[in-house]
């Protein structure tokens, strides 16, 4: 049963890593805007492209 000596700490450590990852993501506000994240991933704001004038948006009918 000596295998427990390292298997149990490994299991606990994995669980704790998961818990801290969750707490960190919660603290950094990643659950604040779940719908927006789906759209933000599509925007190219990290590319050094030519500055684009803010597009004029047609008002809703």
């Amino acid at each position: 049963m000596t295998v427990l000596l390292y298997l149990v700490p490994i299991a606990l450590a994995l669980g704790l890593i998961g818990l801290f990852a969750f707490l960190w993501s919660l603290k950094s506000g990643q659950y604040e805007d779940l719908d927006g994240a789906a759209f933000r991933v599509l925007s190219d704001d990290d590319l050094p492209s030519a500055p684009r004038a803010p597009a004029k948006r047609e008002p809703q009918p």
Binding site: P54, A55, P59, Q60
Partner: peptide, 18 residues
């Protein structure tokens, strides 16, 4: 009011940041 597309996000944020 009127936020309904992906482009709205960057329009608004960039517009206000300037």
């Amino acid at each position: 009011d009127g936020v309904d597309c992906a482009a709205c996000i960057s329009d608004i944020e960039n517009g206000v940041k300037s």
